[in-house]
């Protein structure tokens, strides 16, 4: 595999998709307002929970805000990368242009899951990062190299898990074509990620750690932020990330096999 070529192609992807998004300027503004309102709404909801109590599942309001921050960043990433590409895959399958992609001499997963980028999530990422900085301040977190590295690792893992989940759903398009509803299921499950895992009952916690690893997506990075994550949790997260990445890759190859033996 020629790494240099993939870099060149990716910069082209970046350029072309940003250029085409800029054709719809009002859209970007509306999406920006949506992002702000959405963050305000979730903080509002959180404040409702905290209006009569000091902590939820052992998390104080200031600590729970970290989860909001990480969730917002990840949601921004989803809106910037994962969701637009999913939409693109659905279009490819429905219009039969997936054939063009498969005949390109680049890895089809690379092409199909990274081709699009939409600036509408940028603001969310920025807002989330700002919120995180604010949280670092109000929670009096000491910054150290160790801390930064751990944060980076766990957040990267979260992004990879999220990517795998989204790509998994994208892949099912090959059978079902209409995956909007599956996306909605994923979105509503991910919604859980806005709250600390420990605020849910044991059975739900179990479900969201084992079956859909939402616990790993936001709660563990937040714990790392607060400095009370055990190291085994981080290692576990890395392990799970690898499993997810490999499975989603395998699933895609399997889907392609099906596509090329059954499509007409």
């Amino acid at each position: 595999m020629n790494k240099n070529k993939y870099l060149v192609v990716y910069t082209k992807f970046l350029y072309t998709s940003l250029a085409s998004e800029l054709e719809y300027k009002t859209n970007i503004i509306i999406d920006a307002i949506t992002a702000i309102l959405s963050l305000v709404g979730s903080i509002f909801l959180l404040s409702i929970f905290f209006q009569n109590t000091g902590n939820i599942g052992g998390w104080k309001f200031e600590q729970a805000l970290i989860i909001q921050g990480i969730y917002t960043v990840l949601n921004g990433i989803t809106n910037t990368w994962f969701n637009p590409n999913l939409r693109e895959i659905v279009r490819h399958v429905r219009e039969g242009t997936l054939d063009f992609v498969l005949l390109k001499p680049v890895d089809s997963q690379f092409f199909i899951s990274l081709k699009k980028i939409s600036p509408s999530g940028f603001l969310e990422i920025i807002l989330g990062v700002c919120l995180l900085f604010y949280c670092i301040k109000i929670n009096q977190i000491k910054l150290s190299l160790n801390f930064l590295i751990l944060c980076l690792i766990t957040i990267t893992c979260s992004i990879c898990i999220l990517y795998s989940l989204w790509f998994f759903i994208s892949t099912t398009t090959i059978w079902f074509v209409k995956t909007w509803n599956a996306t909605e299921v994923l979105r509503s499950l991910l919604y859980i990620g806005r709250f600390p895992m420990s605020s849910f009952s044991f059975s739900l916690r179990l479900f969201f750690s084992i079956i859909i690893p939402i616990a790993f997506i936001t709660t563990i990075p937040s714990e790392v932020f607060l400095g009370f994550a055990q190291i085994w949790k981080v290692i576990l997260e890395i392990f799970i990330t690898l499993i997810f990445l490999i499975t989603s890759r395998r699933f895609w190859l399997f889907a392609l096999k099906y596509y090329s033996s059954a499509s007409s």
Partner: peptide
């Protein structure tokens, strides 16, 4: 009637994209 060009951009952008894909 099945198109691979990027809908919102001039075709030249798609050409350069394809060129980079084909090395």
């Amino acid at each position: 009637q099945k198109q691979q060009l990027i809908w919102d951009l001039p075709p030249i952008e798609s050409f350069y994209l394809n060129a980079s894909i084909y090395d």
